[in-house]
Nucleic acid binder design. Structure first.
Lengths: 267, 267
DNA sequence: GTCCTCTTCC
DNA sequence: GGAAGAGGAC
């Protein structure tokens, strides 16, 4: 038996919107600790890991762990039917093959419920090793999204290099080359404008821009994004969901030796 | 050696956006007097002449005249990467085959640079004769753009006739006919709303609306547009760029005798 | 693929 | 509050 009530229901919609272009079907796992989703994207290049803590919910009850396989496109359709201020309640039976979403308008004058069919999905539960990252950059999510979008109009890949002074994004293509440097800034008036760089050692990694721009769909979820990098290991792009959990993306860097347009290594 | 720093960097973007649909590639000429661009549109019907004075720049240095051939589509891509408040600096070496654009955010916490490849373009440097125009109409740029857009949904050509009382725009098509008359108004409270007609003798000329609507992409550059006309000569459509220079378009009138759908004479 | 709406940024 | 870009619908 699962029952979870979330006042800030629009959160769910943003999470699903951020992920549905990368993964078409996924298992959403529920346990007493909350909701989580872990999946490779459809082209098996990047990895998505989402967690919403049980305590983020107004009411949360999950008698025993369950895994609910869903079409994320369908899930997105259902969540789109919720008003932006609606309170969302999820319900599922332990052995059912459906999950029910209930939407209540804040004024309580409208209640809708949607029953979504579940499906069996082979889950490849990849353990994500806890890494000690060499460089962690926290910057305004919107600014980061803008940079990814701008650079993707110039080139296909980006080199992200973190030094103590700042983080530099570099790309090149037919048009020419482009560099964007964002300086560390821990003293901005508004906390939203701050950029913080936590560096053990400088690192420079190359990534496919199309995945980074896709990850950036999560921008509405958070004011800041955190890029955590270590040489030759996947970058972790994290959007912290205010007091609730996180949405993390992992993408392996392109290794310079094998860049014969052979494209896209899995993490 | 070229180095030019422009605080109001968004200006450049507006100029390029206004022109890029008419000319795909163009030479941008730089000399100690500033930047200029002169080109026929792709279909060789209209002529574009832009000038930005050296004194419009915060810092301007151009050791010897140079001509930089660019894809305006690529230039537009690069300029789109500038924030709307960014300070723009251009740099080029005398014999280089690239030009570098540097964008600095006002708070100086983000710096980007874009290197754009230059190309060889045959320039047909047409002298534009200084004409004594019979009629000069200065009117709000937005109002003029609206008229062009509205009329182009009715017909393909417009007759612009200037008399001492006002300027009349006439078109007709399958739908019917349309006339828009704008009266001289030199006493409007706001200077932006004024329309001034300077007339030596009345004149009425016929133009292809598709070019006029295309020219009107320059509207964001200026509060007013000036139409200068003389019988049987090209109209000059001028957007004065505040304290900086101008963007002028020239379009030959359709001559009534030969209007057997023979379309589009060059100026 | 195009149009229209919605959101976001100015 | 308006315009431009992104996303959704037909």
């Amino acid at each position: 038996m699962l029952e979870a009530r979330l006042v800030q229901g629009s959160m769910l919609r943003k999470v699903v919107d951020a992920v549905k272009d990368l993964v078409s079907d996924a298992n959403i796992d529920v346990s007493s600790s909350g909701f989580s989703l872990q999946a490779m994207d459809t082209s098996h290049v990047s990895l998505i890991a989402m967690h919403l803590r049980a305590d983020a919910f107004e009411h949360f009850r999950c008698d025993r762990p369950m895994s609910m396989g869903m079409s994320l496109a369908n899930l997105a359709k259902v969540l789109k039917c919720a008003g932006s201020d609606d309170i969302v309640t999820l319900k599922a039976n332990d052995d059912g093959d459906t999950v029910t979403f209930m939407f209540e308008s804040p004024k309580e004058d409208r209640v809708s419920d949607f029953e979504l069919k579940l499906m069996d999905i082979d889950s490849e539960h990849l353990g994500i090793p806890d890494t000690d990252y060499c460089a962690t950059v926290t910057m305004p999510a919107g600014e980061y999204a803008r940079i990814c979008k701008d650079l993707s109009s110039i080139g296909d890949t980006v080199v992200i290099s973190a030094t103590k002074d700042g983080v530099k994004f570099t790309t090149s293509g037919d048009v020419g080359t482009a560099n964007v440097t964002v300086r560390q800034n821990t003293t901005a008036d508004k906390k939203e404008d701050q950029t913080i760089i936590d560096l053990k050692e400088p690192v420079a990694l190359t990534f496919a821009l199309r995945y980074l721009t896709s990850f950036a769909k999560a921008t509405p979820l958070a004011t800041h994004v955190t890029l955590s990098m270590t040489r030759e290991l996947p970058v972790m792009v994290e959007y912290a969901i205010q007091d609730m959990g996180h949405l993390r993306f992992y993408l392996a860097p392109k290794i310079e030796d094998e860049d014969m347009e052979g494209e896209d290594e899995a993490p």
